[in-house]
């Protein structure tokens, strides 16, 4: 699980950013809203989604 998170951060995150900027959102303008360093995640349901995906994969 932890390895998945680490790989997600170092592999998938930059890869997806690259794909999004160059292919999907080519004509968009990008900016930074704010760095949410000390804020919590509002939607706690989000933390269940990886498990649900994993259940779906393994079924």
């Amino acid at each position: 699980m932890i390895i998945g998170c680490i790989f997600g951060l170092y592999v998938m995150y930059p890869f997806y950013l690259f794909i999004y900027k160059n292919i999907i959102g080519k004509n968009m303008e990008y900016g930074i809203y704010n760095h949410l360093k000390d804020k919590e995640y509002k939607n706690k349901y989000d933390f269940f989604i990886p498990s649900l995906i994993a259940v779906n994969f393994s079924l």
């Binding site: 390895i3 592999v11 998938m12 995150y13 990008y30 900016g31 809203y33 994969f57």
Partner: peptide
């Protein structure tokens, strides 16, 4: 599959942390 699911889904949390938005 939990590894695979977190590999795919964890960037969603990281995007939120980065605060990148598009217009």
């Amino acid at each position: 599959t939990l590894f695979l699911a977190l590999f795919l889904y964890s960037p969603v949390w990281y995007f939120l942390n980065s605060g990148i938005v598009f217009s």
